[in-house]
């Protein structure tokens, strides 16, 4: 059981490192992305990776208090992605 707990802690830290590296990769794509669609996609990916980081933080600390923050960030990420795409497509967000 102690061995399994140690393996779980190692998996948690490796997951933290992987999601952080994915976040940095999305940031590089946001920086150099050749087109507007790539930048919108990079922002959407960064929001999703941020949700993953908050969930992992909740697992490490053993609490449930990050649930509402995660839900609100998920909703804000979807709405902002749709707003960026609508702005590029129509030149206006709410017509």
């Amino acid at each position: 059981m102690t061995l399994l707990s140690t393996i779980m802690d190692v998996c948690l830290y490796v997951a933290f490192i992987t999601v952080s590296v994915a976040q940095v990769m999305a940031m590089i794509r946001l920086w150099k992305g050749p087109s507007t669609g790539d930048r919108i996609l990079a922002l959407d990916t960064m929001v999703i990776n941020a949700i993953g980081l908050i969930v992992l933080l909740g697992i490490v600390q053993g609490t449930q208090i990050y649930f509402e923050a995660t839900l609100i960030i998920a909703m804000l990420g979807f709405v902002s992605t749709v707003a960026y795409a609508r702005f590029v497509l129509r030149g206006d967000i709410i017509e």
Binding site: M1, L4, S5, I7, M8, C11, L12, V14, A15, T18, V19, V21, A22, Q23, M25, A26, I28, R29, P34, S35, G37, D38, L41, A42, T45, N49, G52, I59
Partner: peptide, 28 residues
């Protein structure tokens, strides 16, 4: 605990693949 470990490994694999794909692929 084994379920948590398996879920974490699946999650980190797919998240890493997503990050590498976002950076490496050559087409929009």
């Amino acid at each position: 605990t084994v379920g948590v470990i398996i879920s974490l490994i699946i999650g980190l694999f797919f998240t890493g693949v997503a990050g590498i794909g976002l950076l490496k692929l050559d087409n929009a």
